[in-house]
């Protein structure tokens, strides 16, 4: 075996951890196994997650359940128009006793950062968060403070209420590894939700199934999942196809390729495999690519959804065949 490639037993550990987290979160979020799975995939890929949906479907609940189940430090920042960048990054405060400036960490110093309704804050404040997401550290007054690991931002964005909001520009969305829609629960799931949430606060009853250090180990295993050259070629061809598509004005960036690869590795590990298959790439193409591309005017006029266009582009890319 090539040195560094994750072994089967290592990925089995990741799979077991992921399954435990998924079951824990599933106690709180009913009937959304796919979404939970994607969320865990994002966590293991250390990819920031953008959840876009109407209010009240459990976006915040999902993020909080995730944070709680891994017993990690979670912080929740409610984005409002008057939120300042220093509220996110932290601020240097003069300590009268020590006669020194002390760094008072902001909301971003946590393993799981829930950025609620990110489109409500001013662009300046959004930028502060996005910079921290990208660099995984914060620099205040010339001092650099590393963020704790794992570090995942789960941002929610409300697409219906556009009044007085500052929606993320497409270029900024590129910083998010995955984007997902929660969608309304099915009728049975909604009934189950009423049952659970009627009696007590389920989040209170959720006990952690693992800890941040274990998750960090899982993340390092995930990074060592094997990716065959043919699969990499397929991935690159797939991302490139969004750049060539006539329906897409702006295609996915090379950063998107990298994010897609990481996410695919994470999904393989969650699945208990130490290798990535084209199935992983296909399954993650829409969550990783759809929020980064801009539709052409024709496609917009044709009322086509981004997901449709990306799926179509993906289907056109030939799959890797048997090795000769």
């Amino acid at each position: 075996m090539e040195a560094g490639v994750a072994s089967v037993s290592e990925v089995r550990t990741v799979q077991a951890t992921a399954t435990a987290i998924g079951e824990a979160v599933g106690q709180v979020i009913d009937g959304k196994d796919d979404v939970i799975r994607l969320t865990i995939t994002a966590l293991l890929a250390e990819a920031h997650l953008l959840i876009e949906d109407v209010p009240g479907v459990g976006k915040t609940m999902l993020a909080r359940a995730l944070a709680r189940s891994i017993d990690a430090k979670a912080s929740r920042i409610q984005f409002t128009p008057d939120l300042l960048p220093s509220d996110i990054t932290g601020v240097a405060v003069f300590n009268q006793h020590s006669r020194e400036f002390e760094f008072k960490a902001g909301g971003v110093f946590a393993n799981v950062v829930i950025a609620d309704e990110i489109n409500r804050a001013s662009p300046k404040t959004q930028s502060a968060l996005l910079e921290a997401m990208e660099e995984r550290r914060v620099t205040v007054d010339g001092t650099t403070h590393p963020l704790p690991r794992p570090f995942v931002v789960v941002a929610t964005q409300n697409p219906v209420e556009m009044e007085g909001t500052y929606p993320l520009p497409e270029a900024q969305r590129d910083r998010f590894g995955l984007r997902l829609d929660l969608g309304y629960p099915s009728a049975t799931a909604e009934v189950a939700m009423l049952d659970h949430h009627g009696e007590a606060e389920p989040l209170e009853q959720l006990s952690p199934v693992t800890d941040a250090a274990a998750v960090q180990r899982c993340i390092s295993v995930t990074r060592r999942v094997f990716v065959h050259r043919a699969v990499k070629d397929y991935l690159v061809a797939l991302v490139a196809s969004t750049r060539d598509s006539g329906d897409i004005r702006l295609g996915a960036s090379p950063r998107a390729s990298l994010q897609l690869l990481r996410a695919a590795k994470a999904q393989a590990a969650v699945d208990g495999r130490n290798y990535v298959t084209p199935d992983d790439i296909q399954a993650l193409a829409v969550p990783t690519l759809a929020h980064r591309v801009m539709l052409s005017h024709e496609a917009q006029l044709g009322r086509r959804s981004v997901a449709d266009v990306v799926e179509q582009a993906v289907a056109a890319v030939p799959l890797p065949q048997r090795r000769s």
């Binding site: 490639v5 094997f226 043919a230 290798y275 298959t277 890797p320 048997r322």
Partner: peptide, 14 residues
Amino acid sequence: RVELARFAPTAGAD
């Protein structure tokens, strides 16, 4: 098995 043969790091053994 075909998936392993094509994409796994140690195709033969698995």
